[in-house]
Write a protein that binds this DNA or RNA. Structure first.
Lengths: 159, 159
DNA sequence: TTCAGATAGTTGTATAATACAACTATCTAC
DNA sequence: GTAGATAGTTGTATTATACAACTATCTGAA
């Protein structure tokens, strides 16, 4: 493996770790709710009247999981379910005022966290940093479609 | 919030998502084992004869969780437990040949993944990208120690 | 126009990963 | 030598998840 490729690995691993995706009770931004709950709030804040199915697709979760997730949030008074006027099978999800306030707080906490990071970056580096991040993201997504390096077989038995 | 701070947020979120920390059955590098298992393998490959306690500290998991995790891996034949000659309470963990082979595969898969990303980055950008990642990591760790932006109280009731 | 199949959601059940508490065995310091 | 600390195990509970079976509703084609 080349030297730069190892450097890239080390730096990206450090970045991911530094982000702190570990604790399931607290979002990376320090708000005390689970990651699924936070994502739900953000999805619904972006656009209300999503159906549960749409939410499931967005969160990449099974519909039964989403059904229970939504029940919990309904129980906490963060959202309400309405049955869709146009399709009797569907349920439309809509944040309550409380849910909207929480979504706003969450967004603010996230923004504050990133603003903190931004101010810790020297002024004259910022532009280069943003450009570099774009390059990395693009490189990762083009690498993702090529799975040739991934082995699937052999020796992972006993699971 | 400033424009650059929002850009930073968007790019970092895209990077984290792109990394794909979602599926608990497959590591981000495509190896079919849980993230805890992969981390255990990597920790023990770095240095054998760790105790369970040391492993628990490294993985940030409770000792009972580690006890069961280690039992599983022992059952799969990836490692063995030996009682410590110097401290009768402690258990020393040691990868089997099979465990070492898996650790090596895992390391190789990770390296391959990053090498793929590295080759997708234009030659003339690579140096700037590495430099930028260092800057971001440093900025994140200095921002982490300041938690003033995190609110803890209010309105998260009913959990 | 009806009915077969598709779709949205719920509920039952199972599993995995985790934590905390209580316990045992061992160690250490006074 | 004993009191308290420490390493590990086991019992129990919780949470997040998936899959399967079910109900209700919708849609398109004979």
């Amino acid at each position: 493996m080349s030297e730069t490729s190892r450097d890239l690995q080390d730096h990206l691993v450090a970045l991911i770790r530094g982000f702190g995706l570990h604790n399931p009770d607290v979002t990376p931004c320090g708000v005390p709710m689970s990651v699924s709950e936070a994502h739900t709030l953000m999805e619904l804040a972006d656009r209300e009247d999503r159906t549960q199915r749409e939410l499931a697709v967005a969160l990449q979760l099974e519909k039964s999981t989403v059904s229970r997730l939504v029940s919990n949030l309904e129980g906490k008074g963060w959202l309400v379910r309405r049955s869709s006027p146009s399709d009797g099978r569907s349920v439309l999800l809509c944040l309550t005022n409380k849910g909207q306030r929480l979504a706003a707080k969450l967004a603010a906490a996230r923004a504050a966290k990133f603003a903190q990071v931004a101010t810790a970056i020297p002024e004259d580096e910022l532009k280069a940093v943003l450009r570099a991040l774009e390059v990395v993201v693009r490189a990762m997504s083009s690498a993702k479609s090529d799975n040739s390096a991934i082995q699937k077989n052999e020796e992972y038995e006993n699971r």
